[in-house]
Nucleic acid binder design. Structure first.
Length: 270
DNA sequence: AGAACCACCTGGCAGC
DNA sequence: TGCTGCCAGGTGGTTC
């Protein structure tokens, strides 16, 4: 599910309802996520106020107490506010009961997500090697071309590599490459500066449009306010193998890169 | 160093 | 209806 737009949608949905609130209680029903949920989470968070919520790549960071609560949604996670005393449903693994009437609840069927305590995000092993943020000032064709220099990995996999660029997953890699007219298999070290510029702009524009639409809801993603996203209705290529390209009408092709489904127009993308 | 795989999980769906 | 196999939004770790 969640790539940068879905994580950002979650963050924005939660901000007005969570920041400034005190955490009354922490309930961990299932600690077996990607890594075990820390046993002392309740002690660290109980009674503390959430000062802010940040995003780094696909990670959410809740600034609280003398550190940060790190949440990753994995493939199937969602984080929503529910009224206090709402009975837990299947896969509701972690609750943060807030002061007042609401509870912040993590649901994650596949349990690829994570809930961890991080003292200093800038040095944490999961965060320190993350690549550039697509909305950072440093992001652009020049940087991407420099990072890709000498690499033969397909540009689609380069974009999905979180050590290069953070936040882009399978859906938005497919969509941004289409928007830029770049073939997903093209070796990343062999794109001209002009094409990197176009791709960088397409990445930003695609992510911006997706955030504006509240992200994508393919199965059951909901943002922090509990509402689904609508960007899945605007996909040009993702999941559309065999359908006509919205630009030229040629049938969209399906392929695979590193086991992940790829969709592209063989005529528009070179 | 870089690239190709595998692993971790559950649920939904197509096909028989 | 029910079984089997395949697929899915991520990413750290292992192997070559």
């Amino acid at each position: 599910m969640p790539e940068l737009p879905e994580v950002e949608t979650t963050r924005r949905g939660l901000l007005p309802h969570v920041v400034g609130r005190r955490i009354r209680d922490v309930v961990v029903r299932e600690p077996r996520l990607r890594w075990p949920v820390p046993r002392d989470l309740a002690r660290r968070l109980g009674g503390e106020s959430v000062r802010d919520i940040h995003r780094r790549g696909k990670y959410l960071l809740f600034e609280v107490g003398d550190g940060h609560l790190l949440v990753h949604l994995g493939m199937s996670g969602s984080l929503t506010l529910v009224p206090r005393d709402t009975p837990p449903r299947r896969h509701d693994h972690v609750d943060l009961a807030l002061e007042g009437e609401s509870t912040l609840r993590l649901n994650d069927p596949r349990r690829f997500g994570a809930v961890l305590w991080v003292k200093r995000p800038e040095t944490h092993v999961l965060l320190k090697s993350l690549g550039v943020e697509p909305f950072d000032a440093a992001f652009g064709g020049e940087l991407l071309q420099r990072l890709a220099n000498g690499r033969r990995v397909p540009v689609k996999l380069f974009l999905m590599n979180a050590r290069m660029v953070s936040g882009i997953g399978n859906i938005y890699a497919n969509e941004a490459l289409f928007a830029a007219g770049v073939h997903p298999s093209r070796p990343s070290g062999r794109l001209s500066r002009e094409r990197w510029d176009r791709l960088a702009a397409a990445i930003r524009q695609t992510l911006e449009r997706a955030i504006a639409a509240g992200g994508s809801t393919l199965r059951d993603f909901v943002g922090g306010d509990g509402r689904p996203g609508y960007f899945q209705n605007e996909y040009a290529v993702y999941g559309r193998a065999g359908e006509p390209c919205p630009t030229c009408g040629t049938a969209i092709r399906g392929a695979r890169h590193a086991g992940r489904a790829t969709f592209y127009c063989g005529a528009c993308q070179r």
